[in-house]
Design a protein around this nucleic acid. Structure first.
Lengths: 353, 353
DNA sequence: CTGAAAGCGCTTACAG
DNA sequence: CTGAAAGCGCTTACAG
């Protein structure tokens, strides 16, 4: 009645469902597997979900049948009953262009995708800059499409965070967010900044400037670490606050610093990208790095190896940050307890300082 | 019987479904909306799907009810019957670290996400390097989780492409893939390369080298464009083939070129990242850019503005490539005809040549 | 234009 | 350990 190439099912008889369905576009169903294995679909389902309470014989038959039919579970049907999607939203807020151009972000995205994949979760990427997009994200997240949210934002204090904190869904942020209530994973920014500053001091540098970036997540902590070491000695005119972690901002900040303190002999930039801009500007001003001015960065991102000279910086264990974010989030999804984590940094000495 | 805080439904009576369900975790359903609006759920569904064959009165009532209940459609239930997921897989093959560090890739990912979002499609990011991951991707894609695939690969000739070409799902590739059968969107690489080479010639350069990159998508075309202009004059020792589009490869290639042809007075690199590496190596060798050696890149990615001096390059309209990829794919998903597209490039003159 | 009914493919108590 | 049954929330012919 229904041959292999016929995609319509003219038969209303419930008994011929299996055969007819096999002819449809979306491969075999659990019923087909059950039929082939000679068991009920309940048993197949049990095999699918951990094989508890299944006899060895049935297990073998079902596994064999799954292979011969090429069965693959229909996630929509499963989600409909379990109310779990096995998907996670990776939400980027605010100025995405900026975020996307940050090498750190790429690492985060790649490692989260990978860690999630290993647990059979998929990552759906969502942007959230315009009001429209924000709405869409909120609807999506609330609509049960995902089981949890990974929150990546450059700026602290995103309003979206508040909505999530209200307990709609499990969420974890990258970096300490402004609002409380959301667990986060971050590097020990303050301690790392202290270490770099101390290193510059130990190298005999006397006038150590800082290119800070307080509007960005992690920025305030890095500035605090610098002040921890230099205390009163950190004159106001030695610190300039960049608007973001970009190369251009680094160039501008360095120019400002040089104008205010031409006798500066070291500068600690709150990110590698900022440091790269600073190096370019220093060279343009006729100064040698590190001979005249030492430059320290923060992140140890890819570009730390591409500056000329290569950058002395503080390594942030971003791969680990990503893995831990996924770990915390998945625990929360499983209703297990989990809380914020702080990861240690490490000084990496190269040629710039 | 079931109060607002009670999440179990002790009532087996079908008539009390609405009230009990409203107390469950996943918000209101189509039945709740129907009840509030005083219509059948079929009517609500029709409103959801374009509001055809719905009277103005019913429409108004349903819209109102959706608002008061805060209704949001359950995509799993919908997918189960429509067999559409409204999701697209963005699949990255092979060496992801490399791809992720490419600024071009970020643009592509960002713009695809955005274009997809505007059509209410979501993007799920998938990596495909290990055999395990490849399996996972294949299962996922075949399992009906997504309606189509955006294929991004550095290397041409990925085996995965073959599987897709076999008609499992609509797919479109970025850049001309090795295998036929998959539509693609790409920049006019060859023409762009011709333009750059001709520009260098017009600037009076005599010994124009090339840092090619034939293993990478787009690479062969760019080399061909260079040869189109220089023909026989392009001596073998003026061309070196880099392994990938990385900064490190650019440094290495430039060193090689300099060793073979110390009198070189221009170099065309097949990507901006390669060009950035070349500039660093030229400076290290004591040569001035562009005075001694002019350098041209390809892409006009972010880093073209960050090199010192800023890079003269060929602009690839990547935002448009992304949008067109999404357009082609979505047409295919809707079973509309669509085929490959080639987008024009543009010479951008800055200071390096 | 609208309602009642069937069905999408799965999971999960409930009996046995 | 296993089967039969109910139900997840939606869409889609089918009558009216």
């Amino acid at each position: 009645m229904a041959d292999a190439t016929d995609t319509t099912d003219p038969s209303p008889h419930p008994k011929s469902r299996g055969a007819a369905r096999r002819a449809l576009r979306r491969g075999p169903t659990i019923d087909d597997v059950a039929e082939v294995a000679g068991v009920s679909r309940g048993t197949v389902s049990r095999v699918l979900n951990g094989a508890h309470y299944v006899s060895p014989g049935a297990l073998k038959a079902v596994e064999q049948a799954m292979r011969t039919t090429g069965y693959t579970v229909n996630q929509s049907a499963r989600s409909l009953v379990t109310k779990q999607s096995n998907a996670i939203a990776f939400v980027l807020s605010e100025p995405q262009e900026r975020l996307f151009e940050d090498p750190n972000f790429s690492v985060l995205l790649r490692c989260c995708t990978q860690a999630l994949g290993e647990q059979d979760f998929s990552l759906v990427l969502m942007l959230e800059s315009s009001a429209d997009e924000r709405d869409r994200v909120l609807r999506y997240v609330r609509g049960g499409h995902v089981d949890g949210v990974l929150l990546i934002s450059a700026h602290a204090g995103d309003p979206f965070i508040g909505d999530l904190a209200r307990g709609v869904l499990p969420a974890v942020a990258c970096g300490r967010p402004a609002g409380p209530g959301i667990p986060y994973v971050a590097a020990e920014d303050r301690q790392g900044a202290r270490e770099m500053t101390q290193y510059l001091v130990d190298q005999g540098r006397r006038r150590i400037g800082m290119i800070a970036c307080s509007p960005v997540v992690g920025g305030p902590e890095r500035l605090a670490g610098y002040r921890d070491v230099l205390g009163r000695k950190a004159l106001k005119r030695l610190v300039v606050d960049a608007a973001d972690y970009s190369h251009a901002a680094g160039v501008a900040a360095m120019r400002e610093l040089l104008a205010a303190s031409p006798d500066i002999d070291a500068v600690f930039a709150a990110s590698d990208l900022l440091a790269a801009g600073a190096i370019d500007e220093l060279r343009r001003s006729g100064r040698r790095v590190p001979d005249d001015v030492a430059v320290g960065g923060f992140d140890d991102s890819r570009i730390a190896r591409e500056t000329d000279p290569p950058l002395t910086t503080i390594r942030q264990p971003l791969e680990q940050v990503a893995r831990e974010m996924v770990d915390v989030l998945l625990r929360l999804v499983r209703r297990e307890p989990a809380s914020s984590r702080l990861l240690p940094t490490e000084l990496v000495v190269r040629a710039s300082a």
